[in-house]
Design a protein around this nucleic acid. Structure first.
Lengths: 256, 256
DNA sequence: GCTTGGACTTGATGCAGATCAAACCACTGC
DNA sequence: GCAGTGGTTTGATCTGCATCAAGTCCAAGC
């Protein structure tokens, strides 16, 4: 593993609080692996032997039942995944596949569990990460049960805008059919949802989405800090570890 | 607090592994409180100062957006709730209200956080609890995105049957309109869903549901160990801490 | 260049589930 | 007992979204 990669891992919330010894133990058995695009890393139901740290590329987590498939999350660097399964030494509930060429650091699960026993601060950091993930899922469920498809799309666009702290144009980082599944709709319906948003200040141009009237879009989307993590809360400071669904690093600002 | 209550708390997964000193510290500042039925304990957005341990009664967690409301979970003893918010010292994402008269042990949040710093085994137990909760929410999302209303109801009935390790009759422990919201449908639709299940060996009699043909119901429900925690996995032993959505105690057998 | 395949869009149709409305029932309180 | 209230059921209707079916666009391969 290159020193620069080590630095990146060291910088994660998960290890930031840990004792140097803990960090050494955990990363000693770790190995960096590269995967091509469209590679399944793990099927749901598989035993989870490693904690995965995505350093480069994009990974999709999805679930299956009765010949249906749904995208649960898209991960971008730097994110860890499968932490809950590792902590419990349990099977994976979701499959993971690369959407593009990826660099992934794989840390043996028992190293993580051992480190937690030895270092309360590290165990605390794991708890914070899991708690943040937990709250992200609560937000996701509220999003799905309380809003319509168009409303979910509108809020997704606002979240993207906030994450990229961009101007009036955001870029979709993956295919629309994947976004559709993530938002819980069909590709056809996503297309129509975009069309519906034209009346609310949104125009689409391939992967680029122009938000020409933010006020109008927000009026439709009604973002809420208790669902949308990006939404402003009344003058409050955003708690760092409560950042996102899959990793506290997911949503950090100034990425690239 | 009565000694018997202390014993019940001591028996929880959360404290089972903790050092006696940790247990003492955490429960020293705790107080037992009784609430009447239909009392809101906490609104979403409120600051969370306590970890709540439900010792008696039923509590509903629900979320709101734009004048809509949805039930996120129903808790029964012995369950903890708001652990994720406590770990992060964050606002509640869900409101909590009693459905009936409740006894709740309230443990100061900072006592929990302090105990985690001091006792790695306790921090580990918190992680396991959160990881179990996390996985429960993943199951919930798969359930909602991949199944229809009737399928969700069918699986819910099978889960009830499994939890009560009962015979062919299960009892609904709360009102149908609450169950409807929990399953993501309207009361009218739940009624029709029950009617639809008549063709698959289910008859309803108030709060009692008779499953006259389990094979037929399972053929419709297609329970899956990666969604339904009760579903049998191939000869495997069920991992204890991965027990349920809101608490590892939720689903334990031989309750009453 | 042409061809092929997959992503995306657009239109027509069908279905699951929401909404509206009314009736029924059980329980509560007077 | 009786009226009132709220939960539940049933029916009629409406809507959002899925499904089915073309057709377009675009990139990769021959």
């Amino acid at each position: 593993m290159r020193p620069t990669d080590l630095d990146r891992v060291r910088g994660l919330h998960l290890f930031g609080q840990a004792a140097p010894e803990t960090f050494r133990v955990a990363t000693a058995g770790a190995h960096l692996q590269r995967f091509p695009a469209n590679t399944t890393l793990l099927f749901e139901g598989d035993t989870v032997d490693f904690l995965y740290m995505l350093l480069e590329g994009q990974v999709e987590l999805h679930g299956t039942w009765n010949d249906h498939e749904t995208v649960m999350a898209i991960l971008r660097p730097v994110s860890s995944f499968l932490l809950a399964a590792v902590v419990l030494d349990a099977d994976a509930l979701m499959s993971a596949r690369t959407l593009e060429r990826c660099e992934i650091l794989m840390i043996p699960g028992d190293a993580i569990r051992t480190a937690m026993q030895l270092d309360a601060r590290f165990a605390m950091a794991v708890s914070r990460d899991l708690a943040g993930g937990y709250r992200g899922l609560v937000r996701t469920i509220k999003n799905h049960k309380l809003r319509s498809g168009v409303e979910r799309l509108a809020n997704h666009l606002l979240a993207l805008r906030s994450a990229d702290n961009a101007g009036s144009t955001v870029r979709l980082h993956y295919e629309k059919r994947i976004l559709a599944s993530l938002l819980g709709m069909t590709p056809e319906n996503l297309s129509r949802a975009f069309a519906a948003l034209q009346a609310h200040g949104v125009t689409v141009e391939g992967a680029l989405v122009h938000i020409t009237n933010i006020a109008a879009l927000e009026a439709l989307a009604k973002p809420d800090p208790l669902i949308d993590n990006h939404a402003p809360r009344g003058g409050d400071i955003l708690i760092d570890a409560d950042a996102e669904i899959w990793s506290s690093e997911w949503n950090r600002k100034a990425r690239r």
